[in-house]
């Protein structure tokens, strides 16, 4: 698929923002009575969370042809994951904002807690529904797997925690908490990596059991598209198509591995094993930035790797998973049905 920046920004930033919120909500809920969590942390990370979610919302509207009636997108919550995505995002962003407001106003009530719970629910809901937008597109094998919602959820939480860690490590907080959070982050980064590797393996090891033969209804092994109907690119030849070469994708994959996993994990390991407040502040910022950038690439790659069936009609369908450095065995493995 054509990687659409707006959607990359939406899913990565809103996801991270929600991850931050989940972290701050939990920390607030567990530790705030003890006064362990400084107000600065809650407000800063809350605002960052809101900002990230806002970027996501804004980005998502730029993707629409008719943003002014974007609200209509909520109408089909019964059927459409996209409706649910919009609703859950509104919910998480709204709750985050209210939660922060209540916190700021010092409303330490069960209402705030309920709002927080709703925000968390909205966030999780967004992870699921935004990923299901993709996972439910049966015609993109790389997307329509349970790995997609799991990835979106884990990646959102992980990147959120990474951001949260960066704020924590730069605020006046008990180092144990920083240690604890970074340990959790280390674990989550590991899990994310594992999930990503699983995804690559899945991408490489399975293929859609469709072919040009059935696409055009001719039983012959040799089918060549000579003309796609117009001499020029059009919506259907650009929307599902990415212009990148296997080489470019491979190097993007390596970048993703480094920025999203290797660098953050290394830093998290340094922080955990060798905690030094002087540098952990800056290190954790590097970690968070690296991970966010890495995730932008990762999400971009997620789009690029999505190989829509309709590419069959435009000579753009990739029958093999070439370009995957992890598993290069192409076109072996299990057929995936699209029903």
């Amino acid at each position: 698929m054509h990687p659409e920046m707006a959607l990359v920004l939406l899913t990565v930033f809103a996801g991270a923002g929600q991850g931050i919120f989940i972290l701050l909500f939990i920390l607030d809920a567990i530790f705030s009575l003890q006064g362990i969590i400084p107000q600065g942390f809650i407000l800063t990370s809350g605002i960052i969370s809101l900002a990230l979610q806002a970027i996501g919302v804004i980005a998502s509207t730029t993707h629409l042809g008719n943003p002014h009636r974007g609200w209509r997108a909520m109408l089909m919550v019964k059927n459409s994951w996209l409706s649910r995505e919009v609703i859950t995002l509104s919910m998480s962003a709204g709750c985050t904002a209210l939660y922060i407001l209540m916190y700021w106003k010092g409303m330490d009530s069960s209402l705030k807690f309920a709002m927080g719970m709703l925000g968390v629910l909205g966030s999780i809901g967004f992870y699921i529904s935004s990923s299901m937008v993709y996972a439910s597109v049966r015609f993109v094998k790389e997307w329509s797997t349970t790995l997609t919602p799991i990835n979106f959820t884990v990646f959102g939480i992980t990147s959120g925690i990474a951001c949260g860690l960066a704020v924590l490590a730069n605020s006046d907080v008990n180092p144990d908490i920083i240690l604890g959070v970074s340990e959790i982050l280390l674990a989550l980064t590991g899990i994310s990596l594992l999930l990503k590797l699983l995804t690559y393996r899945y991408n490489a090891r399975s293929y859609l059991s469709v072919s040009e033969k059935n696409a055009i209804g001719v039983n012959n092994p040799s089918i060549k598209l000579m003309d796609m109907g117009t001499s020029y690119a059009h919506y259907n030849t650009t929307e599902y198509y990415h212009p990148y070469t296997d080489e470019q994708n491979k190097s993007m994959q390596v970048t993703v591995l480094f920025l999203t996993f290797v660098i953050p994990a290394t830093i998290a390991a340094i922080i955990t094993s060798n905690f030094a407040p002087a540098i952990s502040g800056i290190l954790s910022i590097i970690l968070a930035v690296s991970m966010l950038i890495g995730m932008l690439f990762e999400r971009r790659l997620f789009f690029i790797q999505g190989n829509n069936i309709q590419n069959l009609y435009y000579g753009n369908f990739r029958h093999s998973a070439a370009g995957n450095p992890i598993v290069s065995a192409a076109r072996k493995g299990t057929p995936v049905s699209v029903k």
Partner: peptide, 19 residues
């Protein structure tokens, strides 16, 4: 009613929707 989110086009296996 259409907001131009293009989602429907992704879901069409035939490449028959035109934005």
């Amino acid at each position: 009613q259409c907001i131009g989110c293009k989602y429907c086009s992704w879901a069409c296996p035939y490449g028959c929707r035109e934005y």
